[in-house]
Computed example of a mutant assay.
Amino acid sequence: MTDPTIGSLRVDGATLHYQVRGHGPLLLLIPGGAGGAAAFDGIVDDLAAEYTVASYDPRGISRSTLDDPDAEQRVAEHADDALRMVELLSPSEPARVFGASSGAIAAIHLLTTQSERIERLVAHEPPVVEALPDAAEHRAYLARVQETFRTQGLMPAMAVFAAGLKKGGDITEPEPELKLPPQAAARAEQTMANLPYFLGRIVPSFMSYTPDIHRLETLSNRLVLACGQDSHGELPNRTATSLAQRLGTELQHFPGGHTGTTTHPAEFAEHLRKALSS
């Protein structure tokens, strides 16, 4: 892996840590979950042959610090952070954007509010449960996650959360532990340190987000919705599928599951490159 150019960007209420590789038009990678920009380590070099690839830790994750650690997190604010990154690194041209999981939700909001700054967006498994016909059931599941977190602590709550993401949505008999992909082992300590913030601040805000379907319909030629080939039936796959159906767009299938950037990096990068240029 080539050494990136490292920078920090001051935004309202936070300082974002970012890294840039390559040359060409800007491709902004917005991570989701608790892993931060390191989740893209396996794909950035392949993409940097064609793009100026920028990735960053979302506010409150890893090296991107909050002024107020207890501040409520909002999708619109995270989308504005992405906008500030685009304005910094590509001030005169619209950017290509890839968002994964909760990062895809921030990217979708950015597209609906600042469409002139995005040439093309690939959104991989955004968990927009409000787009599902059984959204009320998932609201109850998310409330149970937060109640478990409050009364029993982090790992029992993560077990409930992980179980609810699985195929069939079995939230009555959760797995006793959360297993990270093997490729994430090197950054597991940082990921674990991010989990309380992710579960307590990001999950309730982002997974209650309602996308502007009518606005997205007018922008569907710039939006590619993607899911994992191996995650059929899991909650984030279902939300991507439902959103694509509501927008009348074709859903693209990327290698791996929800964490395909980590488990199948070379194949994932190739699919992403094609999706960005098609």
Rank of each mutant, 00 (worst) to 15 (best):
Y56L: 03
D57S: 03
F198R: 03
L88A: 09
E116M: 10
R74V: 12
L26E: 13
R215H: 01
E175D: 02
G35L: 15
A186G: 09
P236W: 04
H232T: 15
L247C: 13
G7C: 12
H78F: 04
Q229K: 06
C227F: 06
L235C: 06
V203L: 10
A14I: 07
E72F: 12
H214W: 13
H232W: 15
L27P: 12
Y18L: 14
S205V: 09
P236D: 03
A79D: 02
L247M: 11
E87G: 04
P196D: 06
G200F: 05
T218Q: 11
E87Y: 02
H138G: 01
T151C: 05
E234F: 00
L121Y: 12
P211E: 09
P196L: 06
R201E: 00
E130V: 09
L110Q: 08
V122F: 00
V128S: 13
G24H: 08
D67T: 00
F161T: 01
G13N: 11
F254V: 03
T113K: 10
D57R: 05
L27S: 13
G35M: 14
H271P: 11
D230G: 03
K179H: 04
A14L: 11
A38S: 15
L83Q: 06
M192R: 15
H78P: 00
A185Y: 05
Y209H: 10
G33K: 09
L223D: 00
A131Q: 04
L225Y: 08
